[in-house]
């Protein structure tokens, strides 16, 4: 089998999951830490209506920056997110089939489902499931949502989040993310090294602390105003902005250990209000 490029892996997954009945959604255009933050997951997992979606979500985790010096960690990377509600009985098998569709021999590699209680304190979300390990590398987060936006869910969604770079490493047998073939003739590194180095420097050393502190306050205020006007989507986008501002402050070392939970709590309060508004409970 020909080794898939990064872009081909995305194509294959789109193909696979759309055959499973998923709507192929486009990435959110706001900075987020994970695919879970996309409204296609956060809002759509809340209600009792069936929903199936799959999409790529570029994700930013400022503290994970390593100046493009680490083969596995980056502050900007791509998740492939699948959300299915209700969760099909054979979802684990479907997931393994998706790996096969990518050309991964699941019987010839050590595939493990390792216990993981997933939690997103900023979104008031939690669930139970696994990290999926392929030859001891975490390639997927597999979660049955139990709670989102502080609300116990009536209908359980299954969230599958692939780490695209890591899966590509296996497929292409290259253990440095920057060596991956993005497309034929174009390396992942060509696309990202400068971006990664500069952003690592920005997040850790240069980001304006005062500005981000002010932004956090402003975003929070704006979200509250919009919530009062019953505008769930716009309000939520400011929750995400506030969350990202906090992440930058965190990477800059501008948030002390005792302040941390308070910032997270403030974002969570907003996220809960958005969830309530979305469900029309206000």
């Amino acid at each position: 089998m020909k080794k898939l490029t990064f872009v081909q892996v995305i194509d294959k997954l789109n193909e696979f999951w759309s055959r499973q009945g998923c709507v192929i959604v486009q990435p959110l255009d706001t900075e987020v830490g994970a695919g879970t933050f996309h409204p296609a997951t956060f809002f759509r997992s809340l209600d009792k209506d069936p929903w199936k979606a799959a999409y790529v979500q570029p994700s930013r985790r400022p503290t994970d920056g390593r100046y493009a010096d680490n083969p596995l960690r980056m502050q900007y990377y791509y998740q492939y997110q699948v959300l299915i509600k209700p969760s099909p009985r054979d979802i684990k098998k479907i997931y393994l089939d998706s790996l096969k569709a990518l050309g991964i021999d699941v019987k010839g590699h050590e595939v493990r489902f390792v216990e993981d209680d997933w939690e997103s304190p900023t979104l008031g979300a939690s669930g139970l499931g696994w990290e999926v390990w392929l030859d001891s590398l975490e390639i997927t987060q597999f979660t049955y949502f139990q709670q989102v936006g502080g609300k116990e869910l009536d209908l359980i969604s299954c969230e599958i989040t692939y780490g695209l770079e890591r899966i590509c490493m296996f497929i292409q047998n290259k253990f440095n993310v920057f060596d991956l073939d993005w497309q034929h003739g174009v390396k992942y590194g060509d696309m990202h090294i400068r971006h990664e180095t500069e952003y690592s420097k920005y997040n850790f050393e240069e980001a304006g602390i005062d500005m981000h502190l002010k932004m956090f306050e402003s975003f929070e205020k704006e979200a509250l105003v919009l919530l009062d006007k019953d505008l769930a989507y716009p309000a939520y986008s400011f929750v995400l902005k506030a969350s990202h501002a906090f992440n930058i402050l965190d990477a800059r070392g501008a948030v002390s250990q005792s302040e941390r939970p308070r910032y997270i709590g403030r974002v969570r309060t907003l996220a809960k209000k958005c969830a309530e508004l979305y469900l029309g409970n206000r």
Partner: peptide, 21 residues
């Protein structure tokens, strides 16, 4: 079936990446 050179090499490379961190 899973005790093969490919799996071993993957474990080795992943360990080194983790240790690098």
């Amino acid at each position: 079936k899973r005790k093969n050179n490919k799996v071993r090499k993957n474990y080795e490379k992943i360990l080194e990446a983790k240790l690098k961190d």
